[in-house]
Amino acid sequence: MTIKVLVVDDSALIRTVLVHMLVVDSDIEVVGTARDPIDARQKIKALNPDVVTLDIEMPNMNGLEFLDRLMRLRPTPVVMVSTLTTKGARETLLALELGAVDFVAKPDGNLEGALELFGAELRDKIRAAATSDVGAHTQRRDRPKAAIQTAAGPEGALIAIGASTGGVEAVRAVLCAMPADCPPILVAQHMPAGFTSRFAARLDSLCAVTVIEAEDRLALRTGHAYVAPGDYHLRVERRSGQLRCRIDQRALESGHRPSVDVLFASVAQSLGALGVGVILTGMGRDGARGLKQMRDAGAHTIGQSRASSLVYGMPRVAHEQGAVVEQAPLEDIAQRLASALGRIRPAA
């Protein structure tokens, strides 16, 4: 099936570049372009695109304001085309909260081959967006979610969470429902360098747990969550009875850095049955192998349900490979984590 795309950007040059990048593959058709949100509104009505690419800084109406109106009046899969700046990162994260499926950071023109990689990533994310159910996702996002009262586990327990497309909001939903007495939480979210510090800061402002970007050799603490830095793998390591973060830039695993497989495999090796793993919405298969290692090591593992996943890719592969003990709707995952932690037997 051909995916119909509308490109929205105030720059004629950027619109032309994006169109050329998208039509490289025969399964994507650019049905139109728009120079601003006013133009885009009319063309969405006339062309009924499957996916919209959207810039933020545009005349007549800010892209974020337009996105908010679009999601409320005519939910449509949107992929943001963002600038790799502090301001761009902040606004992109807000766009994901408003309902955008994913984002692609505009490349630095000085990087050799950056445009080709940017185009490939944009096409992949448009394909994922085309399979998403943004209408149902928007309705679930607007429902209030109650925080659980306690999630204390035995000494040495740890929660590992992996996510990709749609994961920014899914991770937020889980972490904001976790209480301050929970064990340390490690998060591998597919996100480029320059965005994860803002992501962690945003979560920290919303959640009872303290959320920070992980640093190498940082000791893990109760009531804290550690987000893998963009373009770095995150592992957990046990040294002299102390759990610590380890970050590095070893080769990509499962096509990603940070890789969910890398995080989960380290939890399986270092914690065994004291770990609890969660695989959330995302395209691809990253995390399935590592989650299976966790389950084989005695850990309890949870996969996000199909109905509540914006993109049921990573959780589906994990379920099909026998890596998931139970599947659960997003709004129930924090409570399932608390229940799993309560069943863990303390290490001898």
Rank of each mutant, 00 (worst) to 15 (best):
Q293T: 10
G255P: 11
H190D: 06
V209G: 03
A188S: 12
M283A: 07
H233E: 03
P179I: 13
L234Y: 03
E215T: 15
R198A: 12
S205T: 11
R250A: 13
H190W: 05
P184C: 09
P183Q: 04
E215H: 13
I279D: 00
G277K: 06
S240V: 13
A200H: 02
A268Q: 01
A299N: 09
L252Q: 04
T222G: 07
G255Q: 09
P192A: 08
C245H: 01
Q293P: 02
R238V: 14
P179Q: 07
T196Q: 06
D204C: 15
S240Y: 10
V227H: 01
G223A: 11
P258G: 10
A297F: 07
V209T: 06
S266Q: 06
F264P: 01
R250L: 13
G284L: 11
L220E: 01
S240F: 12
G282S: 10
A268L: 08
A188R: 01
L203M: 08
E215L: 15
M191D: 03
R238F: 11
V187F: 04
A180G: 10
A180P: 05
D248C: 13
A228K: 05
G287I: 12
P184A: 10
P258I: 11
E253G: 12
R202Q: 07
F199M: 06
L263P: 02
T210M: 05
A265C: 14
D296T: 15
P183D: 02
R250I: 14
C182K: 01
I212D: 00
L291R: 05
E237M: 14
F199T: 05
A188V: 09
L274E: 03
P179K: 05
E253P: 09
G272E: 02
Q249H: 07
S240D: 07
L271R: 02
P183C: 10
D216E: 15
D286G: 11
F199V: 08
R235K: 15
M294T: 10
L274W: 02
P192L: 12
Y232S: 07
F199C: 06
T301F: 05
Q293H: 10
Q189F: 08
T196V: 14
L206V: 14
P179H: 08
V211H: 01
L271N: 03
G277T: 15
I185F: 07
G284I: 14
L218D: 00
A208H: 04
R198L: 14
C207S: 11
H300M: 14
K292Y: 10
E237K: 09
C182W: 01
G194E: 04
G298I: 12
R257S: 13
H256V: 13
T196G: 06
A200T: 06
I185L: 09
E253I: 15
P184S: 09
G223E: 02
H233V: 10
A265T: 06
V187E: 00
R238C: 15
